[in-house]
């Protein structure tokens, strides 16, 4: 049972919810950029939510399924098609042995997730399957997928098998369920979005102009952005006076400002510590929306309080619970 990579796409890696517990040793968390989409993809194939899936960036890969599989595609719409026929996303998708999945062109969003029922049969490194590209470990050989790779898969889960039966229709090609989870429960994915953030630990060290502009100006996500960080281009933000800071922990969503005044939002592959002043911190509930921003698009930051941020975090978890329950009911009506 495996996925055969015929074309790798721009950047296709294996990711899960990240490698925790080793940041004190300088080992980054990595994991999916859009954890919401990865979790829902897993739910749709009967996997635990933290299971590893493929993260597909903008230009998708071409994949041949060596056996029948139950899969799900979530996240960005990169025009997935099986044997030239467009397939629906955000639902269980049953594919017959020999089927070829392609992605035509990016329609909306930046990263799609492909989960297979049962997950990938690859070794876990330091408690995670996430690919750590720079250090070269985790995922599939510590690297992005290449043409010719055979990614071994486990047998579908029991839960997946129930969905299998439900989805299995034709003897060839593919079929998907006629239901999809309620999109009302998803983050508000949209191009050039407004992203909510709280003040960062060094917010007060910035000039009055910078404190005003961080919330009032739009910033363009530079083409030099990647899984480590989004470089924002726009007005420059400066401190009231030059200050050398002592390095301390940074996290996913930290907005730091190097001396050139152009902010960087740290993303999934961020370093564990940093010494640049932190003007803001993107709220966790909006990180999936930010993860789907395509370089070249703009974002605007909107200030919320920590209390609001944590309420939104809790609401997103409640939405994920409701989605999981709804999918479970589809399996056992």
């Amino acid at each position: 049972m495996s996925l055969e990579i015929l074309k790798p796409g721009l950047l296709t890696t294996i990711q899960d919810l990240g490698r925790y517990g080793h940041q004190k040793e300088g080992i980054i968390v990595s994991g999916a950029m859009d954890t919401f989409a990865l979790r829902v993809a897993n739910m749709l194939v009967g996997n635990p939510q933290h299971q590893a899936a493929l993260e597909i960036t903008l230009t998708g890969p071409t994949i041949r399924f060596t056996t029948d599989q139950l899969i799900a595609l979530t996240g960005a719409d990169l025009s997935p098609a099986l044997h030239g026929e467009a397939v629906k996303m955000w639902r269980p998708l049953f594919v017959k042995q020999g089927s070829i999945l392609e992605f035509k062109s990016p329609q909306s969003g930046c990263r799609a997730y492909l989960a297979v029922s049962g997950g990938f049969a690859i070794p876990e490194v330091l408690g995670s399957y996430a690919t750590y590209l720079k250090a070269g470990f985790g995922g599939f050989g510590g690297r992005a997928l290449q043409a010719g790779d055979l990614i071994p898969c486990h047998a579908p889960t029991g839960n997946g098998m129930e969905l299998f039966k439900m989805a299995a229709g034709p003897t060839e090609g593919h079929t998907s369920t006629n239901w999809t989870p309620d999109p009302q429960r998803y983050p508000n994915y949209q191009p050039s979005p407004t992203i909510r953030a709280i003040k960062g630990p060094e917010y007060e060290l910035f000039s009055e102009t910078a404190k005003e502009r961080i919330w009032s100006e739009r910033f363009q996500v530079s083409v030099q952005s990647d899984r480590m960080g989004y470089r924002l281009q726009g007005v420059s933000l400066y401190l009231q006076e030059q200050t050398e800071l002592i390095s301390s922990a940074v996290t996913f969503g930290t907005v730091q400002v190097p001396p050139d005044g152009q902010p960087i939002v740290l993303m999934a592959d961020h370093q564990t510590t940093g010494g640049y002043p932190r003007i803001a911190q993107v709220i966790s509930a909006d990180l999936p929306i930010l993860a789907q921003v395509v370089p070249g698009q703009t974002i605007q930051l909107q200030e919320v309080t920590l209390e609001e941020a944590q309420q939104l975090y809790i609401r997103q978890e409640q939405n994920l619970e409701l989605l999981a329950r709804a999918i479970h009911l589809k399996r056992n009506p």
Binding site: Q23, I246, S247, Q310, I314
Partner: peptide, 21 residues
């Protein structure tokens, strides 16, 4: 997890669990 640095210790937590859902 916790991350010690020069002058700080940063504690990462899950608000969902800490808030008891």
């Amino acid at each position: 997890e916790q991350v010690p640095a020069f002058t700080t210790v940063t504690i990462y937590y899950d608000p969902w669990v800490v808030s008891e859902k």
